[in-house]
Computed example of a mutant assay.
Amino acid sequence: MIGVVLALALLPYTVVGDAVPAPLVEAPGDPARGRAVVTSRQRGLCLLCHTGPFPEERFQGDLAPSLAGVGSRLSEGQIRLRLIDSRRLDPGSIMPSYYRTDGLERVGAAWRDKPVLSAEEIEDVVAFLATLRD
């Protein structure tokens, strides 16, 4: 039981300006795993709102900025904060808070007190999005 509680605990992070400059975990993120999260229709659901350089993926969204070139526009720390909690930058954002559990409303019982993505998955997505330079 203790292992389950620890697995759900959020790791601390520090926001500096518009970024979380330090990675959430020591191990570097894996861009291939990050791409899998971004394109997953079950896990990240990023393509419901974003488009990007994923020609094999049908039905990409148009509610949010394109992910193409995001690694040129934003630093890894800026990407990380947007994934952790985009509402810190834009309270009206429709982007989910992928690594936050407090202060959320209308959360299904199965997801209550659990982040959408783990710290490792956040770092995987950051590593992948940072590679999108064009």
Rank of each mutant, 00 (worst) to 15 (best):
G44S: 00
G69E: 04
L63C: 01
R43L: 11
V70N: 10
L63R: 05
F59G: 11
R35E: 15
V38A: 13
E56Q: 14
G69V: 01
C49K: 03
A64F: 13
G52L: 06
G44R: 00
A36R: 08
R41D: 08
A68V: 01
Q42E: 14
P65Q: 12
L67S: 10
L67W: 14
L67G: 04
A64Y: 07
V37C: 05
V37E: 10
C49Q: 06
F54E: 03
H50I: 02
S40W: 07
R43K: 12
G71S: 04
T51F: 09
E57K: 10
S40Q: 02
G52E: 07
G44Q: 00
P65C: 06
R58T: 15
P65D: 13
F54M: 07
C46M: 04
T51M: 10
R73Q: 13
C46W: 09
Q60F: 08
H50R: 12
G52Y: 04
Q42R: 08
V70R: 13
P55N: 11
S40F: 02
P53Q: 11
L63K: 07
P55R: 12
R35C: 07
V70C: 10
E57Q: 12
A68R: 13
V70T: 09
S66A: 15
R41I: 02
C49V: 03
F54K: 07
G61M: 08
C49M: 07
R35A: 13
G71R: 07
G52W: 03
G52D: 05
S66M: 05
A68Y: 06
F59I: 01
V70D: 02
R43N: 05
C49W: 03
L48W: 11
L47G: 02
L63A: 11
R35I: 05
A64S: 14
G69T: 03
S40R: 00
R43Q: 14
D62C: 04
R35W: 09
V70I: 15
A68C: 05
E56C: 02
P53L: 08
P53K: 10
Q42L: 04
T39S: 13
G71K: 04
A36E: 13
T39F: 13
G44V: 00
G61H: 05
Q60N: 12
G44E: 01
Q60V: 04
R43D: 14
V38G: 01
E57G: 02
L67A: 10
R58E: 15
Q42W: 03
H50D: 06
F54V: 05
L67C: 14
A64P: 04
R41W: 04
A64D: 15
